[in-house]
Every structure is written in structure tokens, then in C-alpha cells.
Write a protein that binds this DNA or RNA. Structure first.
Lengths: 228, 228
DNA sequence: CACAAAATATGTTATACAGCATGTTTTTAT
DNA sequence: ATAAAAACATGCTGTATAACATATTTTGTG
């Protein structure tokens, strides 16, 4: 992908910038492609790059107790990530990996912080983004802890629909997750993700074909998510 | 409390400001005192005031399913709160109430956003604060979902020690929470908070005298928190 | 293509924790 | 001071979900 094309994609980041600042950004920008399941960064590492997902799908997750992972959030194009830790003067508390082949623009995080101190509109952009993410995290805490297994899985399916959308048929989720990833997203064991998925299919709420998931009744999913 | 005194307390907010900006802040600043258990703001309300806790203790919580509350974070003097929702252009997703008599400085949130657009250092202050809070929220998600009941309670006790410190004797927590609040902080029922607390006391990890909690072995609490 | 490894599926068992009931103590209000 | 309400305490029961076991299917690799 050419730099011109990249700049167009990250316009919400570039719009507030002066031409000079934009050039500075472009000079320091590199583009990498990660393969399916490849690690992008790991918990405990020191953050050096600000990232923007240009194409593909990425998960942000944490290693919990006894090897259980928790998917904290998912990234879709064009979204920014990998900056929180540096802004907080911390190491990464999370890890990131590619769900599928993903193209990522990387800019040294110091370049970004430099631009932030120069450009107030850019600072405001990050204030808003962080505020939205913090709200999502707060919601998620309650949902993951208080809802029952069916409610958590239903919510995850709706969340995936919101995040990555549907295919042309208007009902198949555009992301094909392993049962394990689905479990890690919903805070349950893989076995229970499989079982509950099977139940949903038997109840004609969804239809499953391998990793393809068709949402038959969004209303029912919403109801299960709300109550359970 | 006089405005002079308040300004001194919120110096980390004021330091980046020009004298003119500081005067603008002072003009728009009011101080309220909330009684024990009094609501400060509620879920769904539209945010209008930026707040700073000058003295006392405050909880930020969410109403979960079937009346179960989840305490999301606690505020100590001098910390800022009640600004996330406005920055994200949302209603409050959480509620706030006073654990005990609390004095709170309030500034119209529009005053703050105005100052942020004028003052880059102030914007950076909030970027850092939000980034730290987002990291805490991510950690908390995993801790609350993956740890067992003893681990969650142990963690909460250590968290309260970190947040509010100890009394002069060097081992009594400076905050006296109801068993219900302790349960809401640790994602468990009140019954189980009581039971587990009793167990910890029997194991000589803590000593309880009504709502007073003495930490006898911090190492053991840390171990339980880590493993459980 | 064959083989190993991983992912999916499903049944069984074990257990952590919620839910409920009941009694006691402490706090609050009149 | 006394009644009422709230908080605390503890035992019992039920159940949601983890943990384990064992097939079966799919995927990846030499």
C-alpha cells in the first residue's frame, strides 16, 4: 500500500495537522503485514510504535490465570491502537495478535506524542478516543461478570456484528473465529462456547457452518443478552 | 473551604494554566459537601460538572443485572472524576456516591473543555489520566472474571489499602466499608463477602472488628490474590 | 498423501458460588 | 427508650459452569 493511500485512510488523524506536521508523520510511517495469528506486541513489552489497522482484523487480549486468555477488545480498519501504555508511561498490559492477515501502519509513538504537544486538535482526538474506550471497558466489566453464559455469548455475537459487520447475504458474521477465541471473548471455557453455540443453533437463533455463523434472529440474541 | 485553599489542592490541574485561565477556573468553581451515602450523579444523567474530590471518599459504580451493583473504581483526595462521559459525548454510564462525608469542587465541564482546547499541557494531563484509568479497567476485567472468590476479596482488600492507606497503627484499613460494598467491589454476594472475611480472620490473615479491618499478613493476601 | 496436531463435539463429574432461610446484632428513627 | 430497619452472621440447597474424558473432524506439514 502506498503512503498516499495510507494517509487517506488515516484522515481523521491527519486532518487536524498542518502540512508540515503531515509531512513529518509521513516520513516516519512504515507499513507491515502480519499473518494470521501472528503476534503484534506482547504483554510486558515497552511500547515504541503507534499503530493503525489498515486492513484485516486484530484482537487485544490479556493473559489471565492458568493460561486462560481474555479478549479485551477487537480492532477493525481503520482504528488506532497500541498507544495507551505509552501515554500512561507503562509497559503493555495487553497483547495484540492478528485474527487474519492484517496490514498495519506504524508510526514511532514519540512522533505521535510530539505531534500531540504541538497540535491541540490531535490531543482532543485522543482524549475522546480514550474516553470512549474507557466507557466500553466499564460496560464490559459488568457484562462479563454479571451475565450468565448464554447472555455473554449472545452479547459477543452481537458485538462481533457491530464490530465487523455482516457479509452480502445480510446475516453471516464477517469474521470467522475459532471456538476458543469466541470463548476468550465471552469469558467461558471452549467446551461451553461450543455447547452454547450448538444450543443457539438448535433453537434456530443462529445457524453454524464450521466457523461461519449466521444470525437468524437478532432480536432473540438481544433478548438473551439483556436478560441473561 | 476557601477558593485559595482549593486552588492549592488542585495544583496539578492549575499548574499548566496561565494566570488568566486560572482566574477563569476560579470564577466558575463551586464547592459542595455530600453526606455519607449521598448520590453525586446517576447513570443516564447528562454530565454538566467536572469534579474533584477534596476530602472524603467516593465510589463509582454501575447498576448490573437484578439490582447487583458493581463498584468500578474508588476516588480518593485529590482526584478528578465525572469527566469521561462528556469527553466521549455520552451520558453517564456510571453513578457516583459518597462513602463518607465528602467535599467536592465542581467546575462546569464546558469550562474544562474550553481550557483544554486552549491549553495543550492540560490536554496532555487528561490523556495521561484516561490512559492510566483504561489500563486499570483492563486489569480489573481479567481479575474480576478469572479469579476465585478468595482471590477477588484479597485483591479488593489490597486495593483499598493502596487507595486509602492505613491508620497510624500501620495495619488497619483507613476505610470502613459495609460488607455489601465490599461484595460489590469484589463481584460476589454479601453473604460470601461475610463468609470469606470470616475465613480470612480465622486464618489470621486479617482481624475484623465490625467494619474495621486489620491486615495481619499482607504477603498472604498477595499470594491469595495472585493464585486465586 | 499420510500423519500428527489442532479444533470441534459431547457426555459425565465435581465444585464454586448464588440463592434462600433464619437468627442475631447494630444502627436509625420516632 | 423503644420499635423498626438495616447490617451482619451462618447454615443448607440448588445450579451454573468448570474440569475432565473421549470421540470425531478438520487443518497443517513433511
Amino acid at each position: 500500500m502506498g503512503k498516499e493511500e495510507v494517509l487517506e485512510k488515516i484522515s481523521d488523524l491527519c486532518n487536524p495537522l498542518t502540512q508540515e506536521q503531515r509531512d513529518f508523520l509521513t516520513e516516519n510511517l512504515t507499513v507491515y503485514t502480519y499473518r494470521k495469528n501472528e503476534a503484534i506486541y506482547s504483554e510486558g513489552e515497552f511500547p515504541t510504535q503507534f499503530m493503525c489497522l489498515l486492513s484485516g482484523k486484530v484482537k487485544i487480549f490479556k493473559n489471565g490465570v492458568s493460561g486462560r486468555n481474555q479478549i479485551i477488545r477487537v480492532i477493525k480498519p481503520v482504528e488506532y491502537f497500541a498507544y495507551r501504555a505509552y501515554f500512561a508511561h507503562q509497559e503493555y498490559l495487553t497483547a495484540a495478535a492478528a485474527f487474519e492477515t492484517s496490514t498495519i501502519a506504524q508510526i514511532p509513538i514519540t512522533t505521535i506524542t510530539h505531534l500531540i504537544t504541538e497540535n491541540n486538535a490531535l490531543a482532543c482526538f485522543f482524549i475522546k478516543q480514550l474516553s470512549i474506550d474507557l466507557g466500553i471497558a466499564d460496560e464490559r466489566t459488568v457484562n462479563l461478570t454479571q451475565k450468565h453464559i448464554r447472555g455473554r455469548l449472545a452479547e459477543s455475537l452481537l458485538f462481533l456484528k457491530e464490530s465487523y459487520g455482516l457479509e452480502e447475504d445480510g446475516c453471516t458474521l464477517s469474521i470467522y473465529l475459532s471456538r476458543e477465541d469466541l470463548a476468550n471473548l465471552s469469558n467461558m471455557t471452549t467446551s461451553n462456547a461450543i455447547r452454547t453455540l450448538t444450543n443457539f443453533a438448535a433453537e434456530k437463533i443462529i445457524a453454524i457452518d464450521g466457523r461461519k455463523i449466521k444470525i437468524i434472529s437478532e432480536e432473540k440474541l438481544e433478548k438473551i443478552s439483556r436478560i441473561g
